[in-house]
Design a protein around this nucleic acid. Structure first.
Lengths: 154, 154
DNA sequence: ATAGGTGCAAAGCATTTGCCGCGGT
DNA sequence: ACCGCGGCAAATGCTTTGCACCTAT
């Protein structure tokens, strides 16, 4: 069984080694935004002979190929998610560290206008909200959340 | 002559040493978003006996006191700006690396609403636009820009 | 006087890289 | 067979810290 990301790797003409296959599978199955350490943990669980250096190299390679996207939610470690589940941004729960994704269509035009007013064409943006859960959360929006690993730095 | 930030330090009951006074002055006069290295450079120019460790310590202290704000524009180094020139976000010119500030009042409500829909109270946010300069920039908005130091990492 | 600040160099962390044997294609 | 890949450990870049001395208050 070939994972979604393995397929993408092959299509991009990447050499598929054992460790890459495992990492591709882990990424394909990830529903969150794991950092390298976490990817290494999950990959090691499937195949002991993977070094963290390889995870770093692979993750960088896949990012260059546009297969992965790097995120920076603060805390000093990069986090990754597969490309192509549409434009979305993130809300981080400041107490638990959980990340919730949300669609950004509503205000994308507004950002574009802001850029235009300043004399620029908008190429991309980065938006993160930091919030605290309210007593009675109402869920009228699909949103998956996860736990943010404890930060080491700072 | 006592700089604006030195005043804030005193008001917050911080012990004012020679090096802190110099760093406070440099920060008070900064119109950009310098990183620690840059602050060290500017401070050293005024007083040779300042170590970069002290700049790191001071900058962290001032951030904890709410006098400074840390920014992360990517590139692996923190950048700082004095607190309290109002809510604003940043647009980064992808070609030159220049940073332009802009006001965010217009869409702040919208962000709040998004957070609410997801069941959160909005505490803060981070918004960065990346754009390319257009031929004829129209300037109807106060905006200062600067050059982004070359990134070392990635 | 004394709590806290400073310089220096070493330690920490996340990430990258050199070297060299190994494995896809 | 050939070129790229992976493991390991050393290197890197930013930031923090232990220690011994120094200085505002």
């Amino acid at each position: 069984m070939e994972s979604r990301i393995e397929r993408l790797c092959i299509d991009n003409g990447l050499k598929m080694t054992g460790q890459r296959r495992v990492i591709a599978r882990v990424l394909s199955e990830a529903e969150d935004h794991p950092d390298v350490e976490e990817l290494y943990r999950r990959s090691s669980a499937l195949d002991k002979r993977i070094s963290i250096a390889t995870v770093y190299r692979t993750v960088r390679l896949l990012e260059e190929q546009g297969i992965l996207e790097r995120r920076d939610f603060g805390g000093g470690r990069a986090r990754y998610e597969p490309s192509g589940h549409g434009h979305h941004d993130h809300l981080i729960d400041v107490e638990t560290g959980k990340v919730t994704e949300f669609e950004d269509d509503a205000y994308h035009d507004m950002l574009q206008q802001i850029a235009h007013r300043l004399g620029f064409d908008l190429i991309s943006h980065r938006l993160e909200l930091f919030g605290r859960r309210r007593n009675k959360p109402q869920s009228d929006q699909r949103a998956a959340s996860e736990t943010l690993p404890e930060r080491t730095k700072r």
